[in-house]
C-alpha cells in the first residue's frame, strides 16, 4: 500500500538552516545537509528545503548547497524559493534536486507551470499555495501570506493541476504557526477535487494532528517544520503512533 508521507521542511538562509536547535546527535545543526541526513535516518519520507535568502550571492550558495544535499541524501527532496524562470529550475535540476516548488512566481505567471512541466515533467513541479480564509472565502496570498491576490484557493489548485503541476502543497495561513491542527475540511475538499497528490502544511502541533490530516483531511503527505526542529515530535515516534492508528506509513 502507498504510505502516507511525513515531510520536514527546512528554511535556509545563506546556506544555513534558520531554525533547528538542540540536536544532540549532530554537531552542526546549522548545516542543512547534516540535519537532512538526520531526518532521513529517522524515517522522514521526503524533505523540503526552502531558500529564504534574498540576495543574489545567497542564491548561488543555495545551488551549491542543493548539490551537496543530493550527494548526501538518499531520499527525495524538493527545493523552493526564488524560482521564477526555467533557468532557475534548470540549475537546481542539474544540481540534483528531485522536485522544485513554486509559489508566488506561479501566481504572477501561471504559464510558468506549463513551461516547467513541459521541460522537466510534472513529477518535478510542486505548486505551493498559501491561502487565508475570511468570510468563508479562501484567498490565495503571496510573499509569505502578506499580500492577498485575486485568486481563490480551490480554483487555483485545479488550474495548477490542469497546467501540469505534479503535486499541490497547501498551507493554510489561518492555521500556520497555531499548532492547533491542519485545515482538514479544506484539505479534504481539495483532495476530492484533485487527481494529483496533496501535501498538507500549517498547524501541526501533535501526533493526533497528523492522524487527522490523513483521515479527515485526506492528504497524501503532511509537512511541518518547527515541531520537528524543536524536537517536540520525533519522527520514529510519530510513525509508530500513526501505524497504531491504522494509517499506512513506511
Amino acid at each position: 500500500m502507498l504510505a502516507k508521507r511525513i515531510i520536514p521542511c527546512l528554511d535556509i538562509r545563506d546556506g544555513q538552516t534558520v531554525k533547528g536547535i538542540n540536536f544532540v546527535n549532530i554537531i552542526n545543526v546549522g548545516d542543512p545537509v547534516e540535519l537532512g541526513k538526520l531526518y532521513a535516518e529517522q524515517g522522514a519520507d521526503e524533505l523540503v528545503f526552502l531558500d529564504i535568502t534574498a540576495t543574489h550571492e545567497g542564491r548561488k550558495t543555495f545551488v551549491e548547497l542543493v548539490r551537496r544535499i543530493a550527494q548526501n541524501l538518499d531520499i527525495p527532496f524538493t527545493v523552493g524559493g526564488g524560482i521564477s524562470e526555467i533557468k532557475d529550475a534548470e540549475a537546481l535540476l542539474a544540481a540534483g534536486a528531485d522536485k522544485i516548488s513554486i509559489n508566488s512566481s506561479a501566481v504572477q505567471n501561471p504559464q510558468l507551470i506549463d513551461d516547467l512541466a513541459r521541460n522537466f515533467g510534472s513529477q518535478f513541479v510542486v505548486v505551493a499555495i498559501d491561502a487565508r480564509e475570511a468570510n468563508n472565502h479562501w484567498t490565495v496570498t503571496v510573499n509569505g501570506g502578506r499580500i492577498p491576490t485575486e485568486k481563490e484557493l480551490f480554483s487555483w489548485a485545479k488550474e495548477a493541476e490542469n497546467r501540469g503541476a505534479g503535486e499541490i502543497l497547501f498551507t493554510s495561513m489561518n492555521h500556520d504557526g497555531t499548532k492547533n491542527g491542519f485545515a482538514n475540511m479544506e484539505l479534504a475538499k481539495l483532495s476530492e477535487n484533485l487527481t494529483i497528490p496533496l501535501i498538507a502544511s500549517g498547524g501541526a502541533g501533535t501526533m493526533e494532528h497528523f492522524a487527522d490530516v490523513f483521515t479527515i483531511g485526506k492528504a497524501d503527505a503532511g509537512l511541518a517544520a518547527s515541531i520537528f526542529h524543536f524536537r517536540e515530535i520525533a519522527i520514529p515516534d510519530l510513525k509508530h503512533y500513526l501505524r497504531g492508528q491504522g494509517i499506512c506509513v513506511r
Binding site: 500500500m1 502507498l2 504510505a3 508521507r5 476530492e192 484533485l194 494529483i196 497524501d220
Partner: peptide, 14 residues
C-alpha cells in the same frame, strides 16, 4: 474515490 489513488503514483510503496 480520487482521494485514495492519485496519479502520479508518488511516494513509498511496498
Amino acid at each position: 474515490d480520487t482521494t485514495l489513488f492519485k496519479v502520479p503514483h508518488m511516494g513509498w510503496n511496498s
